[in-house]
Design a protein around this nucleic acid. Sequence first.
DNA 1: AGACAGGAGCAGT
DNA 2: ACTGCTCCTGTC
Length: 305
Amino acid sequence: MSIASEASDRLVRYRWDVRGYDLDITLACGQSFRWRRKPIDGQSAWEGVVGKHWVRLIGNTEGIAAEVVDESADASWLETYLQLNVDHEAIVGSFPQDPQLAEALEACRGLRILRQDPWECLASFICSSTKRVAQIESMVDQMCRRYGDQLKTPAGVLPVYAFPSVQRIAGLSETDLRECKLGFRAPNLLAAARWIVEGRVSLEEIHKLSLADARQQLQMLPGVGPKIADCVLLFAYDFPAAFPVDVWIRRALAQLYFPRARKLNDERLRKFSDTHFGPYGGHAQQYLFHHFRTKRPREGMGGAG
DNA sequence: AGACAGGAGCAGT
DNA sequence: ACTGCTCCTGTC
């Protein structure tokens, strides 16, 4: 449930009584690239863009408050994005009794999986290859500034821009994208956008497919392999079993679950997720990923191979 | 200042 | 099926 109240310049406020939702972890863990931390008197506040909307989010122990510029007073798009209606306890309750996962759940309490726009998510993760989160944010920001529609912001807030549509990106040149510092990712993103515009891959059809078929469809796109496909399926579609295997989760699983294994291929790790973590393996992945990546650097790195 | 970050794709085996 | 290299750019 949300409570909306309208202020002067169409600044609409919402509030949700949701407990145990940590915006700091959720918005900064590398699943989304459009949020900036803007602390307001000690509270955790974030400004970002969701679809065609500038959004400010403020989180505290009472719940989440949102400010948007909108005349419709309908916030279902934001509730979907934040996944406020998912039964998070049921997801956590579906996990196996497992000390390694329990430690990650404890350390990353309040981490949630968002539901993003498929095109923006796909394009962002095509850009993610061999990049840190801050650099991906920079590339995405430059594309939005140059090629995205300007959005309404409240008085005193600098202009923000929507993520450019797939048609807009498809109409650019490789040089345009290289100017956004995409590097070797530029031709991949351009080709992927053109394939989608031509209908060779349909982002609208993905949700109707099985996980295996959805993976196969996305991996047809240039620059999309197993890891990026699973990121998109987990963060933008309803495939909570999608399990992105990147270098961090590879290290985490190797150390925590296969300390004696000589070789581990990614396919084996995805199968392990299915049998061990179950239908919400992707959620378990985010906890393990974030915990392993943010804990004391010495531990878990290097050492025994 | 040169290694590093770290996914996809491909050639070579 | 696996190994090793290349693709750009920013950071440390």
